[in-house]
């Protein structure tokens, strides 16, 4: 299989770390600054950063509509932290532009301020070697307050949903790109293969 090209939305935030992680997992990562570049990619990562800033810049640069359309057509997307907020349909705390693609309610700054940011070991569903804990870094992180019926919960911490998937959309409240553990990025790459197969097979998918 040829190397998939994955775009990392590069308007603001931890872009470099995702690109490095993609490199490690054998994909080609490209930093996206313009909506026209989206068509070069078979998948998209919306990185962590300040979600209000990313949301405003997505509107100013014309990304919002374009991403909505492509992800609506089935382009796989992975959102970390601010990316989770952008993908959510509903938001508690704050008022900002959202893509509104995934049937989840996000609570912004759910754990409190920076002094409440933390690391913890999580047990995640779906990733390779699921018995081995995943060291998760939560930075002024959101959590998922509610999930719709089509949403699969992949990880919880302290009784709150912190990782989930709905069709081709994957979100985590924490930052795997800040650790050396690439199992979530590998999981996302497998989602990409799945999407490609669905596209090739006639009469399946939407």
């Amino acid at each position: 299989m040829k190397k998939p090209t994955i775009g990392v939305l590069a308007l603001q935030g931890a872009v470099r770390e995702h690109l490095a992680m993609l490199e490690r997992t054998g994909a080609r990562g490209v930093a996206l600054k313009y909506p026209s570049e989206l068509h070069l990619c078979s998948g998209l990562i919306i990185p962590g950063g300040e979600s209000t800033t990313i949301g405003k810049l997505m509107i100013a640069c014309g990304f919002l509509e374009e991403v909505r359309e492509l992800v609506g057509q089935g382009m796989p997307v992975y959102g970390t932290c601010a990316g989770l907020i952008m993908l959510a349909s509903r938001l508690i705390e704050g008022d900002q532009p959202l893509l509104g693609l995934m049937d989840i309610t996000a609570r912004r700054n759910a754990y409190g301020r920076q002094v409440d940011s933390f690391e913890a070991d999580l047990v995640l569903k779906g990733i390779e070697d699921p018995g081995r804990p995943f060291r998760a870094v939560f930075i002024r992180a959101p959590w998922i307050e509610e999930t719709g019926p089509g949403v699969e919960v992949l990880g919880e911490h302290g009784g709150r949903v912190v990782m989930a998937r709905q069709d081709g959309m994957l979100v985590s409240a924490f930052h795997p790109e800040l650790t050396g553990d690439d199992r979530i990025h590998r999981y996302f790459l497998r989602m990409l293969e799945g999407a490609e197969m669905a596209e090739r097979a006639p009469g399946t998918g939407g």
């Binding site: 603001q12 935030g13 872009v15 770390e17 601010a82 933390f118 913890a120 930075i139 302290g158 650790t179």
Partner: peptide, 26 residues
Amino acid sequence: VWRDREMEEKGTLRVKTGLAEMLKGG
């Protein structure tokens, strides 16, 4: 600290530098 019996480590170097990483390009 503990949240519902699950251990959380706060104020680690990774958590401190991590916020700065999230501010990049801003």
